[in-house]
Design a protein around this nucleic acid. Structure first.
Length: 271
DNA sequence: CGCCAGGCCTGCACGC
DNA sequence: TGCGTGCAGGCCTGGC
């Protein structure tokens, strides 16, 4: 499910349901996710109060007094708040049972997601320590992107998807931001001029911001038992549209592979 | 049946 | 010897 906008939307849906609540139980039905779900959570979490919920890149961080629960949705995960008596579905792997009778439930068919625990400064966790700037913060702008791309021969699309350069840009929004910036995904990153870096950085921000705004309209889905992310209903400029007419110029959208990922672009609108 | 899918870590081979 | 780089593989299920 997630790129950054989906994770952010999930965060906003979960925060009011989780903040201030005390955990009264944990269920680990399937410990084999991306990494093993630590069994110590069964002892650690009950009795602890949720201090707050944050996001770093595509990680959701549930802060407790004695540490942080790190959640990642992988390719196919979602988190919902459900009533305690909600019947289990296939691939409902993990529950955080709260003191008000509700449950935060992780559903993840492909099991590329993660549930981890860290005490101490979570920013020092090995998965988080090397992450680059948040794209919607002041730490990321055209200058950041310009410096990160100097002397790089890699395709610009791979560079903006590199979580050390900027976090949260997945395959869909990388394609979309590059279209909006008029830049071909395969262009060697080091060839981008300063103004083109400014433009691309701005379009990354715009693309993600708009996607979050759209996700907000489906927010209720995250705190009820059904619903799907707004995601599938979105109209993309190029993503998934190989061979179809460019929405701007009408010429066919091209497909190529970069770093084993499908990449879509319009040869006329993107240079 | 084979291929594809929104993520991301690891390991290997290569060229400079 | 070291780096940057580009791949392939792996973890999984499900849909076409």
């Amino acid at each position: 499910m997630p790129e950054l906008p989906e994770v952010e939307t999930t965060l906003r849906g979960l925060a009011p349901a989780l903040s201030g609540r005390t955990v009264c139980g944990v269920n680990i039905r399937q410990p084999k996710l991306r990494w093993p779900v630590p069994a110590e959570l069964l002892k650690l979490l009950p009795g602890q109060r949720v201090r707050g919920l944050k996001r770093r890149a595509k990680y959701l961080l549930v802060e407790f007094d004695h540490g942080t629960l790190i959640l990642h949705l992988g390719m196919s995960g979602n988190l919902r708040i459900v009533a305690a008596d909600t019947p289990l579905k296939k691939h409902d792997h993990f529950d955080l049972v709260l003191d008000n009778g509700s449950v935060m439930r992780l559903h993840d068919p492909r099991r590329f997601g993660a549930v981890l625990w860290h005490d101490g400064d979570v920013a020092m966790h090995p998965l988080l320590a090397a992450l680059g700037p948040e794209p919607l913060s002041d730490d990321f702008d055209g200058g950041t992107l310009y410096r990160a791309t100097r002397n790089k021969s890699s395709a610009i699309k791979l560079v903006i998807m590199d979580q050390r350069v900027v976090v949260g840009v997945g395959n869909i929004y990388a394609n979309e931001a590059l279209f909006r910036a008029g830049t071909r995904p395969q262009l060697p990153a080091g060839k981008l001029s300063r103004p083109r870096c400014e433009r691309l950085a701005a379009e990354i921000r715009n693309t993600l911001t708009e996607a979050i705004a759209k996700g907000g309209s489906t927010l209720r889905d995250y705190v009820s038992s059904d619903g799907s992310p707004g995601y599938f209903q979105q109209d993309y400029w190029v993503y998934g549209r190989a061979g179809e007419a460019c929405r701007r110029c009408g010429k066919p959208v091209q497909l190529l592979r970069l770093g084993q990922r499908a990449s879509f672009y319009c040869p006329h609108c993107q240079r």
